[in-house]
Nucleic acid binder design. Structure first.
Lengths: 339, 339
DNA sequence: TTGTAGGCGTTATCAT
DNA sequence: ATGATAACGCCTACAA
């Protein structure tokens, strides 16, 4: 096989026009489904397009129309974490699902510290009609400029709630954590600990808050707290520390299922049983939850729906519609066998 | 807060030129780092750019230059699976990492059946300079057209090895499976089963092949085979069936770690112990492997490196360099406690 | 070193 | 219903 040059000049609208014996304007109309083109001509143009295997050049199209039909999904470079995170994966799916019904394409930007400016330029360079920003916990207000230039929808409330961001879609983290805590309390547990998430991430603080408030409300101490970074390994480490600090712990609420899995292993290696010796409740209801041993009781959050909702809101925004600035999706407890 | 219109006309190169008192050509040169521009003018232009907060419009830029500085990462809609797959997640990371050193942006396309044509149009519409296609198992030769129009690098060998695709980066699946099987044999196991992956996916067939060949080579029967779809749930189901068919099974090789996790739960619920009663080896060495209980012995595959290598090959291809058509990355066995 | 001018492939505004 | 003809914002010979 010979080295290809990939230079077979792509067919242009002009060529189609020539072949169909009409003007470029007409071809453009057919391509864009304008209603005012006679059936015969439409057919002729369609055939020419087919014959030439013509595909509109989107750069030219967006330059002229000032629309790109693409949106960006910006995810923080903590990619290592975020990407492996089943919750996030499902969210992306939701975005894709919602977008499948539209003509929009999603272009995902992994935002690394190094390439931050690259992301910014991409967003501001007219590459997309809008952006979806997921769980950013960058200290600065990096998206202030961006959201001034194009519609932006945030997934999860931004850390600096001071700055009133335009639109956000979030899940009721605090309430979910509260449900988890209450379930543990109702189960008769009295020494309840928690493996909290990073406190520089909204879900991390919201879940901790919901947990603490509920325990305190029930007159229980809420002092057995260790922090993890949402990874399984960090969950295991946190659990070991918890058990070391207080061997009497009889329940633990992990801020996400991955850390709960880590806790499972730490509990097992300490010779304790689940839920006999210590009950555990997670958060997310990810795909590993149901098949864990024992199946994990956890807080279900509508990740798929969240992604889809974010996409829908953004599209509406792009279309110039007015959308309520904040959407909160409900969470619920899924009781299985670990608590 | 008032509804923003997002219509604050973005600054153009022309405006920068005016403000800096030079021609557009000069601004363009500065923006593109042309060496032949006097220092003073360069500075002046830079200041104007800064002042106006100017960002080049990429549609215009790519229309004129015929380059987009973007590549597409196409992933099959089996998104549900693929996306949650830690292996895939790591691969994406690798791509991002390699790209961080370049000026290229990655735009990820989730390829759904419904939107297949959307993907094709995107690829052919001059949106990207090249494409990375991951583990596609679509029956048709959907990418024949595409790879004729622009550089494409496949991740994992394509199913139809007949069609000699230009470039692929793969992992040595068969050898990895062979290592796993041999380890089980060396451990004295005699009734070894496997939970194979889908046979319409190359990794699925290659891993099964490596496993079978090694068993047969050792004079052992290779008839205890069940298939899963790489999800934890499917692994559990397959394991149950395996144990039902032959209660004497004393070892199992799962085609990926997620299914191995599923096997763990099925083995546990059958009252057997790991590795006492049945040893298990997985494949992938994903992030859950090390913290599983017991820690999972598995085949490590360089997912990160694979993603990075794919990106590197593609960039070279785009730059017109000649690259060897096939790259095979090595796999290795990580012995932990499950076998 | 810097400026001039034409063109990249579409869309959109006017006429017709 | 269809066709000229400007833009769209930038790059790039070519000229100065």
């Amino acid at each position: 096989m010979t080295a290809k040059t990939h230079s077979d000049a792509a067919p242009t609208l002009e060529m189609v026009a020539a072949k169909a014996g009409v003007s470029r304007a007409t071809v453009s109309r057919v391509v864009n489904g304008s209603p005012k083109v006679s059936p015969e001509i439409t057919t002729a143009v369609r055939e020419a397009i087919e014959a030439l295997n013509y595909v509109p050049n989107s750069a030219a199209r967006s330059l002229a129309s000032r629309r790109t039909q693409a949106i960006a999904l910006v995810v923080p470079e903590s990619t290592a974490r975020v990407f492996n995170d089943p919750f996030f994966a499902t969210l992306v799916q939701g975005v894709g699902l919602a977008l499948a019904d539209t003509e929009y394409t999603m272009s995902m930007l992994i935002e690394s510290e190094a390439a931050f400016d690259k992301t910014r330029r991409y967003l501001l360079g007219g590459n997309v009609d809008g952006a979806l920003v997921v769980s950013h916990h960058t200290g600065d207000h990096s998206y202030a400029n961006v959201s001034r230039a194009l519609p932006v929808v945030f997934g999860g409330r931004p850390l600096d709630s001071v700055e009133s961001v335009n639109h956000t879609v979030d899940v009721d983290n605090a309430h979910g954590a509260s449900l988890a805590a209450q379930h543990l309390i109702d189960g008769g547990r009295t020494r309840i600990a928690t493996i909290a998430g990073p406190q520089d991430m909204p879900p991390g603080v919201d879940r901790l808050r919901g947990f603490v408030e509920t325990l305190v409300g029930a007159g229980l101490p809420a002092d057995a707290i260790e922090y993890g970074d949402f990874s399984p390994a960090s969950g295991a480490i946190a659990m070991r520390r918890l058990l070391e600090r207080d061997p009497a712990i009889d329940a633990v609420f992990a801020a996400n299922d991955q850390m709960a899995m880590g806790a499972y292993s730490a509990i097992a290696e300490s010779g304790r049983s689940i839920p006999g010796d210590v009950a555990v409740v997670g958060f997310d209801d990810d795909r590993y939850a149901a098949t864990a041993v024992p199946p994990l009781t956890t807080v279900h959050q509508p990740s798929l729906e969240m992604g889809a909702e974010m996409a829908r809101v953004l599209v509406r925004l792009i279309d110039g519609e007015t959308v309520q600035p904040s959407t909160i999706l409900p969470t619920s407890l899924v009781v299985r066998e670990s608590a």
